[in-house]
Design a protein around this nucleic acid. Sequence first.
DNA 1: AGCACGCCGACT
DNA 2: GTCGGCGTGCTC
Length: 808
Amino acid sequence: MLRITQYAEVIVDVPTMQTNRPYTYKVKKEFENEIDSGMRVVVPFGRGSRLVQGFVMRVFTQNSFEGSLKEITALIDFEPVLNTESLELAKWMARNTFSFAISCLQTMLPGALRAKYQKELVLIDGRELSKEVSAFFNTRKSQFLDEQKVSADLLTKLLDARKKGKVKLNYLVNDRLLPKKVIFVKSILSKEQLEAAKKNLRANAANLKKMLDYLIRHSQEVQQTILEKKLKITAQTLHSAEKRGWIKRFEKVARRNPVENMEIVKTHPRELTVAQKEAVTAINADIDNENAITFLLEGVTGSGKTEVYLQAIAHVLAKKKTALMLVPEISLTPQMVKRVIGRFGTQVALFHSGLSAGERFDEWRRIKEGKASVVVGARSAVFTPLENIGVIIMDEEHESSYKQEKMPRYHARDVAKWRADYHNCPVILGSATPSLESRARAQKGVYRWLKLPQRINNRPLPAVSLIDMRQEAKKTRFPDFSQSLLDAITVRLEKKEQTILMLNRRGYSSFMMCRDCGYVLNCPNCDISLTLHLDTHSMKCHYCGHEEKIPYICPACGSKQIRYYGTGTQKVEKELRQLFPQARILRMDVDTTRRKGAHESILRRFGERKADILLGTQMIAKGLDYPEVTLVGVLNADTALGMADFRASERTFQLLTQVSGRAGRAQKEGKVIIQTYNPNHYALLLAQKQDYEEFFNQEMNIRHRGGYPPYFFTIQVTASALDEGNAAKKIFETYTELKKVLGRNSFILGPTPKAIMRINNRYYYQLIIKYKKEPKLNACLHALLQKSQRDERAGVMITIDKEPLNFI
DNA sequence: AGCACGCCGACT
DNA sequence: GTCGGCGTGCTC
């Protein structure tokens, strides 16, 4: 019988421009019936044929590659981890975001499925080894090599031994996949035997007795940790019971449940307002017609957008389809999660960065196996392998966290629309303050525009006052608090109502400066001042992580007159405690929420009214709904306005509108106090009035005059190098190249050095292309990247960011 | 990324 | 003469 040789196109895990294309491999006979596209494989790559992970993109029989082919070493998966849709999406994304295909493929999988490489040194000839090398092997035949842990001296000796053929270097590809093993406990005695054992116990063996009592009552197996918690006993007791032959302990594979300890209350569909009903009807019609259309659901805070989402999801589920709901990381609060799970139960899968690698993997697997039909998650959830999607929802669509800031620089909104096209289903973009881009598209009829103009029960919007801090700051001893805000807090404390205080920290930090000579402590690697951290008692660089002691003497002039400028949450907390010693204060910022679950626990405590004041950064602005909060204070509304970014007003308006919505959500009337140094700025005045329409009009005018999005598309090209001159040279070369190609209706801003020109000793230069229509631009930029491969050798890197959100 | 090849200077 | 520096090219 004639056998046909199979070949496979593989994308290898070598993230560089040069290797960013499929390579053809021969498929061994033994894999012929197993191999499929979307599987991960191990392949030999490069001259040394080191083993790397790869993704099979295509299996075929007609090979056109002329050179000699290597064989696939091993299949990592029994079945594909990526389906056809994911592979197609990855290809599209790589092309559209100027990213490596391998990076796109990797981001679609949970981290646990990403390859981990280990280097193994194998001893071949043990004679005449140096002392250090012998000590490294320490009688073993092979040893793992971690370059980070081995001294530079030993490393050269090891590599030397390798060159002499005494030692061989192997590359191992491991899976990080880790099914969770849980220890279970089960009694192996009968009730009678247990009773007998209990009688023979010493009188003071209280823990053993507790355990025997439990076992007598419950004969089924139980998880060890749960038993320990329930009976307040330790593993010690269980070990001793095992030794006595009462119980057996054994391992089981378990699902990690991210909402294990959450109390879920069943929720029911709510009565809809007229506007909500109209929205649901319109959406459901397009769900039924399998229309890949985009809706913009614009509704003020408290107008019931979530209920619209939930009813659309219910409609989809009734049709035996699935639903994807994207939420910003920051508003994936327990409140929101409870509401969705309360409605749809165990078919909901959660997907966000707060989960451990194991939990993420388990949720991903549930989705893939079709055991979850609703996915709620942050940005990366847009890639979850749901099949037969009936609706995709993106809440708070204006949120900048939907755009990934590192390779691949995708926007979840674009991916959502791509998938909606693939599945023929509608997308719902929801927001109280839509991005100008989306709102403009709705106006032009590109999106279907749905509005929820009324708050539920016609609750009044809270009264918002702007406080001019230019005057106020002079009056008080505490420059962060105006008298009006202090008075308002005092009243809430007396009435036992709650207060939320927000500190806008974007582009803002507390730094150290010498009063005598003006010296500012900067990072040695980056062009940025170090930030004071009171919890670790150190000065840290937020870009490269550099950390050093807090200076008490000026390093420049030796003066002791050192001051700390800027407002950090820690400093404000200290001031608050002085001002209101009787108040219970909770602080929520990156420092207090780093630990897993800390975020939830702070919010829960506040929700249980265990604190009077919640002080935090932007992260408290969204999604919270506490009826007892009647005062919201924004300490510094305008730090974002000071930034040279055309989106500054938009961000400020969105944030203030958002945070104002936190006050007075129940019966009690809410009050919002915004402290600002720019009380006449239109973004602040219109946020005060909660007038999105007027803000949209004014801002669009400004964008039109300045030639900014949404009137123009933008692309940012960055060149970076260790040597400043090389980076500058490259960006000017790029500029000249682009000038040749661009039409007369397109513009280039720059080239300029970036605002923070040096990060981790690399210098950054950038230019921004503004265009309306440039059909050849994509191809041109790809050619540019292709050509700059040679410079990459010299350490000059080019990155391209389509529609960047940060221009600095 | 990682490895080999090759072309230069400074050493046994 | 050869050892080793790292610029350049290539990986199915």
